[in-house]
């Protein structure tokens, strides 16, 4: 479904992503794990078209994404829940969801909102509230709901557990499992390697802009080097 082929991404003179290749098949949950600054978000933002690779190619559903502007990539079925959630704090919960459906025909917006409310009943209770007044967990749910409004074929999640209390982290991962079971393909970026690998079909370990290990979620959980570096021994 998604094929990233040997991409190199630079921030000015800084070579942030060095020849990264990976793949996501339809129906899979794939995770990219790695420490802070390894380049995980950079990769997602490159796939989303906010950043552009200097070399290498990205293919989605058999079509190249090279040179496609970010706002057109969403319409192709690729949605991202960005790091730090980045919901529209001054807009209401429902308006945030409407923005998520910006590329969708108007007739699908209301049914879409109802589906998101079924997934996240909490958001329905707070539909008229300004998003900035939501708690961190609720904001994460809103960010995920907003991305789902685009009816994505591939959902990319950037650090959904960041800054959340452990009980909320569990909830978020339950939602990810649920989405997976419902057939959504997911690319999950996490620092919380333990959690990420336990829900993932496959994983890639990223270190300073390079992929250093890959395997199924279980294999990586048992991998000595990965344990040492990311799972606290």
């Amino acid at each position: 479904m998604l094929k990233v082929n040997d991409i190199n991404v630079y921030y000015g003179a800084i070579h942030a992503i060095k020849g990264v290749s990976f793949e996501v098949q339809a129906g899979e949950v794939v995770t990219l794990i790695g420490a802070n600054g390894a380049g995980k978000s950079t990769i997602l933002n490159t796939v989303s078209g906010l950043l552009h690779p200097k070399t290498g190619s990205i293919e989605f559903l058999g079509k190249s994404l090279t040179g496609v502007p970010a706002h057109k990539i969403v319409a192709r079925g690729l949605a991202q829940v960005p790091e730090g959630r980045r919901i529209f704090l001054q807009m209401t919960v429902e308006e945030n969801l409407e923005m998520g459906a910006f590329t969708q025909p108007n007739s699908t917006v209301d049914p879409g909102i109802q589906r998101v409310y079924e997934q996240f009943p909490r958001l329905k209770e707070r539909r008229r509230q300004i998003a900035g007044t939501l708690s961190g967990g609720e904001q994460q749910m809103l960010a995920m709901g907003r991305a789902l409004m685009a009816d994505p074929k591939l959902l990319m999640l950037d650090e959904p557990s960041m800054g959340l209390a452990p009980i909320l982290v569990d909830q978020i991962f339950e939602i990810i499992e649920r989405l997976h079971q419902a057939g959504t393909t997911i690319l999950l970026v996490e620092q919380n390697a333990q959690m990420a690998l336990s829900v993932a079909d496959r994983g890639y370990v990223l270190e300073t802009g390079k992929i250093v290990a890959t395997g199924t979620g279980q294999e990586l959980l048992n991998n000595e080097a990965v344990k040492q570096a990311y799972l606290g021994g």
């Binding site: 989303s48 906010l50 502007p69 057109k72 919901i87 998520g100 590329t103 907003r146 991305a147």
Partner: peptide, 9 residues
């Protein structure tokens, strides 16, 4: 940035 991720030009 977030607006672009929504598909807004």
């Amino acid at each position: 940035g977030a607006a672009q991720l929504m598909g807004i030009n």
